[in-house]
């Protein structure tokens, strides 16, 4: 059973009638994802490509039994959308939206604490279990089923890493974009734990970046618990300090936030560090062969 999403996952899309929401919903359905409902306030009773649209998440869940929400709502209303899904007790919420104010996410995260509801994102590409379920915006055809779990703070670097894996015949168990914001629902270390406990995952590719201490938290967990090989790349070795590099969370403030500090922490915890983003696939293949996992 893959982590987070699988072929049984029933998805409600919040913001389904918007431009990106509708385009990406169609891609999800083409991929095989069970999209059972959409939500757009004021458009209840309509349909989009045969998917029933509701005014509220609560109505959508009551009629369809949706157990995962995919959010495309614009930044100013996104925190409200996440909280609406949480109030409707949707157990897994995946928020793609970029640009949500940090103060809004602080309140959302506080509300979710202890609720048992898992939020992935925001500012992320979503979650995909190749061959089963795509809850996000990633190009489905570069993914393939297999034994490697992928965790990334960046969306496009998931695609980059996965394309390298797939072209070498190495498939993925599940790929999780945790998001590029300073405050996110699920930290890389939590996904690392899920992969460590997942029998279908043999190795993990961890893609971090400058800013914050998420990689150090992952390293601390790895050192004591991780039983599977981890291959890590940290983006931003050449980024100047004090400048925000696109992602709101990608800014070097203090020594711990540098790529070098993160690489050192992960290396000490036993990760295989890849310096060039072009070598992620090759390094993973080498590790899998060395450990007799391929």
């Amino acid at each position: 059973m893959p982590i987070l999403v699988n072929r049984e996952t029933k998805v409600v899309v919040q913001g389904i009638t918007g431009r990106e929401g509708s385009f990406q919903t169609r891609r999800c359905i083409e991929y095989g994802t069970k999209v059972v409902a959409g939500v757009t306030p004021g458009r209840g009773g309509e349909e989009m490509d045969g998917v029933p649209v509701f005014d509220t998440v609560r109505q959508a869940v009551a009629s369809t039994g949706a157990d995962c929400s995919l959010i495309f709502v614009p930044a100013a209303a996104a925190a409200d959308a996440i909280l609406e899904a949480a109030y409707a007790e949707v157990p897994l919420i995946v928020c793609i939206t970029e640009g949500i104010p940090v103060v809004d996410m602080v309140r959302v995260k506080r509300y979710l604490r202890g609720s048992g509801i898992r939020l992935i994102g925001p500012n992320c590409p979503g979650v995909i279990t190749p061959g089963q379920c795509r809850v996000g915006i990633m190009p489905g055809d570069v993914f393939s089923p297999g034994p490697v779990g992928v965790i990334s703070r960046s969306g496009t670097l998931v695609y980059e890493a996965v394309a390298q894996l797939t072209s070498r015949g190495i498939g993925q168990s599940t790929c999780v974009g945790v998001g590029g914001d300073p405050v996110i629902g699920t930290a890389p270390v939590e996904v690392l734990r899920l992969f460590n406990e997942d029998p279908d995952t043999k190795a993990v590719v961890l893609i971090g970046e400058i800013g914050g201490t998420a990689e150090q938290e992952a390293a601390a967990y790895m050192a004591s618990e991780m039983t599977k090989p981890v291959i890590a790349f940290i983006a931003g070795a050449t980024a100047p300090p004090g400048r925000r590099m696109g992602h709101a969370g990608a800014i070097i403030v203090g020594e711990a936030a540098t790529a070098q500090a993160k690489k050192e922490a992960l290396a000490r915890a036993g990760a295989v560090i890849v310096d060039s983003p072009a070598d992620i696939g090759a390094a993973t293949e080498r590790v899998l062969r060395e450990r007799g996992l391929l």
Binding site: S152, R153, S154, G155, T156, L157, Y159, E160, G180, I207, E209, I210, F233, A235, G236, A237, T238, A239, M245, G246, H247, A250, A259, D275, S276, P277, A278
Partner: peptide, 16 residues
């Protein structure tokens, strides 16, 4: 580049 992570990684690759 599209995407902040890939944009940083592209800078890193150029440097390497």
């Amino acid at each position: 580049v599209n995407g902040a992570g890939l944009a940083m990684a592209t800078m890193d690759a150029i440097k390497l």
